[in-house]
Design a protein around this nucleic acid. Structure first.
Lengths: 210, 210
DNA sequence: CGGCCAACATACCACGGGTATGGCCGGGCA
DNA sequence: TGCCCGGCCATACCCGTGGTATGTTGGCCG
């Protein structure tokens, strides 16, 4: 049996998560520069002292918020892309799910827009390496390995694709009709993929069901 | 003959441009949040009073810096894309020039990265509408109108293309070998374009150039 | 049960954006 | 030429906010 969790640890973890949750909300609504730490603390029903006990500063708090929103998207995509179906089906499912995730205002403003500026591009890049960008790349790699598409340079192409999708994210979310724009964008991307798709008879071997 | 410019106007305009130049340098080096107005004024050999006489605030100063770096790129691309050659040649020339422009640290950090965050995405978008993004779209429109490529949805596609190029910009500039990465990216984009290019016999009329 | 330390609260500092006010000089006018 | 006006800019100041240093409490362990 696991050693009994102490009461103190429960409290501590609770306030920490409350702070992160508060930070996510405020950073999403007013942006990084527009939110004060007092405000974050107040919404979490604590003071700045608690905040600085759990985080070394405003940047660290932001990174915690970043991790929070990023992990949600990551988990969703992870499940889809390692799930059932052919490589093609999984890749397209991942694409659809990613576009859908971009409709979340928190993910959009925190992870896509402000993170590179706040965390610094270098740090953001290496964080994305193991998060959503990593999945985009592995998705493309999946298609190439399965012989579904012609061998494009995966590294460069996935960077371009991620950039396109990221910018499309904002376009979708701020459009008058997000569903419609989202569908249009998905359509264009899929058409692009279809252009590099190998005809079925060239595919090495592919069972009828993944 | 033009009315004699007064001495005062010369001075005023001079200090204003000095402020903008100073702002561009510091915003590029230390980012928007990392540069103080006192610093900007000091480098321009004036005080904050002068700064606030010419600009309503820090944001306005940033937008002036944004306009400065953006207009440089715009003028270059404008010349190329309205110059000589077939639509295909001009579009490719514009693509090459845009990637080249993205190597400028000022354009990259100010116009591409921080502008959407500092100015707000909405305002940034409408500014880009008449700047570099406008040229990307008109370039694509050029190809479609000339019948060089199949009729893709220009609006959405150019947004995706611009996003891809923007993110590629940072990738290129921060790479160990920018020239090489830049060439790779350009190659991938061109290959994509070639995939939607119409065979020669379908193009209305086009000289032997290619 | 007594001390101890993590988990906070409180008080304070420093810096930087913004503002109010004062001074200076070029330039139009008499 | 004298003079004052107004644009151009400097100086002094305010205050919100990130960060720090110190005080306080309550759960856990001996």
């Amino acid at each position: 049996m696991p050693t009994l969790r102490s009461r103190r640890l429960d409290y501590s973890e609770s306030t920490r998560s409350a702070l992160v949750e508060s930070a996510v909300e405020l950073f999403t609504k007013r942006g990084y520069a527009g939110t004060s730490l007092d405000e974050v603390a107040k919404r979490a029903r604590v003071t700045k002292g608690a905040l600085y006990h759990h985080f070394s500063g405003k940047q660290a708090l932001f990174e915690a918020a970043f991790d929070a929103v990023e992990s949600l998207v990551y988990d969703r995509l992870q499940k889809i892309m390692t799930g059932k179906g052919t490589a093609w089906e999984r890749a397209l499912g991942g694409l659809k799910a990613f576009i859908g995730s971009c409709l979340d205002p928190a993910y959009q403003r925190i992870a896509i827009h402000e993170a590179p500026v706040v965390m610094g591009w270098e740090r953001w890049r290496e964080a994305e390496e193991q998060c959503s960008f990593g999945l985009v790349r592995s998705g493309l790699q999946l298609l190439v390995d399965a012989g579904e598409v012609e061998p494009v340079p995966v590294e460069v192409t996935s960077r371009l694709l991620f950039g396109a999708l990221s910018s499309a994210a904002t376009e979708i979310a701020s459009a008058a009709d997000p569903k419609k724009v989202g569908a249009e964008i998905e359509d264009v991307i899929v058409r692009m993929l279809l252009r590099v798709r190998r005809p079925a008879d060239e595919v090495p071997e592919r069972p009828a069901a993944g």
